[in-house]
Computed example of a mutant assay.
Amino acid sequence: MELLEIIKKVSDTIIENRDYLTDLDREIGDGDHGVNLARGFEKIEAELPKMTDMKPADIFNKMTMLLMSNVGGASGALYATALMKATAYLKKTETVSPNDIVAIWDEMIKGIQMRGKAVKGEKTMLDTQIPAYEALKSAVEGGKDIKEAFKDALAQGEIGMNSTKDIIATKGRASYLGERSIGHLDPGSVSSYLIIKTICEELNK
């Protein structure tokens, strides 16, 4: 099943980048972003063989539960909330069209905004996700297939991720640094970018 293959690759990517994400977080945060996320995705990867006959909504629900119970810190709550929103949407549909993917991502972002009480421009994962989502939405509405749309999303997500280097953090532990947070990438924006990049690469194989 293609969805499970993508989830496996996303899990691999986060696990492989555990130290990189942790080092980024050590510079401006608690120093646990990579360690925490990798722990959650290791649990997800271990459970994938049991998900082969599950519907997408059930797969996302299982991932939500695994992240909530295994990932500490803000990142676990934010990513779990996003997956919970995806689960709720998927329960209402039998198919997953490009328009559905746009709607699901929109719901996920709303969940992150609600849980993190953040908006774009505050040095968070939203600085990657919102530009990427907007590019995907524009591409799908313009008639591009999902593979090409994700290429557009990846390009804008990368720009958004890199923009966090120039933003003063106002959320989380990084906000304690004030102007000293300038010059550092936000770890959540980087993990979001890595996830989008992996999905894009898998779709375009």
Score class of each variant (00 low, 15 high):
L3Y: 02
M114E: 09
I109M: 13
S138P: 06
T124F: 07
S163N: 14
R26T: 09
K117V: 12
H184T: 06
K151T: 12
I109T: 10
S191F: 03
C200F: 14
E148A: 11
T198R: 00
G178L: 10
G116S: 14
E45Y: 13
L66Q: 02
G31I: 03
I44Y: 06
V71K: 03
T164W: 10
K123H: 01
G143E: 03
N204A: 07
K91I: 00
K110Q: 08
R18A: 08
K117Q: 12
V102A: 11
L90G: 00
S175K: 05
L126F: 02
T22F: 03
V140A: 10
A80V: 15
D186M: 11
I146L: 08
Y79K: 10
E94N: 07
G34H: 02
L48P: 05
G72R: 05
T124P: 15
D30M: 09
L3A: 05
V119A: 13
E27S: 12
I196G: 08
D32Y: 00
D23H: 04
T128P: 10
D145N: 00
K137C: 03
T128D: 12
R39P: 04
M125F: 04
E16K: 15
N36T: 00
L37Q: 03
Q129F: 15
A74Y: 05
D152H: 06
K151M: 10
A38N: 01
L136W: 05
K120C: 07
T198D: 00
I59K: 01
I168R: 12
D186V: 14
M63N: 01
E134S: 09
V96Y: 06
D145T: 09
D12P: 09
P131D: 10
E5R: 04
I15R: 01
E158L: 15
M54N: 07
Q156T: 12
D127S: 10
N61P: 02
V190R: 07
M114G: 13
T198M: 04
A74F: 10
D100E: 00
K92W: 04
A57G: 02
R39D: 07
E27A: 11
T164P: 13
A57K: 09
I7E: 02
A86Y: 00
K55A: 11
D100Q: 01
E47S: 07
M54Q: 09
L66S: 06
E158W: 14
L21A: 06
M51A: 09
A153L: 08
R39H: 05
T164S: 11
I199V: 04
G40I: 06
A149D: 03
I109G: 11
